[in-house]
């Protein structure tokens, strides 16, 4: 997987150079703490280009698998996006926004790649599939609830995704490996963010501890589905392209257990929900999510934005 070289120094200008001295002429503009660059990393656009030019094309199995991971990230990004302008403090608006943007980036990469098998774009997959065609697990569809519920969901998601992406970087499928290599670093930070909050909410006030315990109870039934193997994952794991979800469980349990222990919290003993998202059987929530997400695109089929 290649990424195009990008120039290091792309000092931004405002496009309003005619008004006064502007940014460039101002005293602080050379201060190093404000130098901004787009960086150099794998972008969904790079994958789209490789798919379009026929450089990469996923097998049907790999596409189906990428669809699962893409849908997980997309639905979560849709949920998290709601927090921007509603977080407990402005700093947290920004933090949750970053996590949502990371997830959306992963979703776009996986969906773009998956679409290569069926000549569909990321947007055709996101906006014009019906509910039963989505492959997200139930956990990602769970409502935001209060901040503790969102943190509980994010805690489970990020520890799961970290173990998954960490192993996927060694996938025999070069594109999956490349997407995972970018994603694993970002998800590592999501782990840290959620762990910090788990500890603070659990050991902050009595109110916050109660809410944290409640939040974990609400999301825990959906943990099991994340680690369920099926024929597709077994086939792909045998081929070295993917990993068996069940193989992630031990590390997930150990690492989440450490944080929960530090927070003096018990692993919730709630019975597991049956799941079914990977087969297109969803919770009651997904329909609403899709209705909102897809409404405008579907009003204007074929339009470009």
């Amino acid at each position: 997987m290649t990424t195009p070289e990008q120039t290091e120094h792309t000092e931004e200008t405002t496009g309003h150079g005619d008004i006064s001295v502007g940014v460039a002429g101002s005293g602080d503009s050379s201060a190093s703490a404000t130098r901004i660059t787009p960086g150099n990393a794998l972008r969904p656009e790079d994958i789209a280009l490789e798919v379009r030019t026929g450089l990469v094309k996923p097998s049907e199995d790999v596409a189906e698998y990428a669809l699962r991971l893409g849908d997980d990230a997309l639905i979560l990004a849709q949920r998290l996006g709601h927090w921007i302008s509603r977080a407990p403090e402005l700093e947290e608006d920004v933090a949750l926004g970053n996590i949502a943007l990371d997830q959306l980036g992963h979703a776009r990469s996986f969906l773009t790649y998956a679409g290569g098998a069926w000549e569909k774009s990321e947007d055709e997959l996101a906006y014009f599939r019906r509910e039963h065609e989505f492959r997200s697990a139930h956990l990602f569809e769970q409502p935001n609830g209060d901040f503790a519920v969102t943190i509980a969901r994010q805690f489970v998601v990020s520890y799961y995704q970290f173990e998954l992406y960490r192993r996927l970087t060694e996938s025999t499928d070069a594109t999956l490996a490349a997407i995972a290599a970018k994603a694993v670093k970002e998800v590592d930070y999501h782990r840290d963010h959620s762990a910090q909050w788990i500890i603070r909410l659990a050991q902050g006030t009595e109110v916050s501890r109660e809410k944290m315990i409640h939040g974990l109870k609400l999301v825990w039934p959906y943990v099991a589905e994340l680690f369920a193997d099926d024929e597709l994952t077994t086939r792909l794991a045998d081929a070295g392209a993917a990993v068996e979800p069940s193989s992630l469980k031990a590390d997930f349990d150990r690492l989440t257990g450490e944080i929960l222990a530090e927070a003096e919290l018990e692993v919730p003993e709630t019975p597991a929900a049956p799941g079914g998202g990977r087969r297109g059987k969803h919770s009651e929530h997904l329909g609403y999510i899709l209705a909102e997400m897809q409404v405008l695109a579907r009003e204007h089929p074929g339009a470009s934005w």
């Binding site: 969904p44 997309l74 990004a77 849709q78 996006g81 709601h82 921007i84 302008s85 402005l90 608006d93 920004v94 926004g97 970053n98 949502a100 943007l101 959306l104 980036g105 979703a107 776009r108 969906l111 990321e122 947007d123 996101a126 906006y127 909102e292 997400m293 409404v295 405008l296 695109a297 204007h300 339009a303 934005w305």
Partner: peptide, 23 residues
């Protein structure tokens, strides 16, 4: 409009913009 942005690229851009405003 973040939740209803008509393409994933626009959704990402809008999210980043609104987040910038918090900053």
């Amino acid at each position: 409009w973040i939740s209803r942005a008509p393409s994933l690229k626009r959704k990402a851009i809008l999210m980043a913009k609104v987040q910038d405003e918090a900053g």
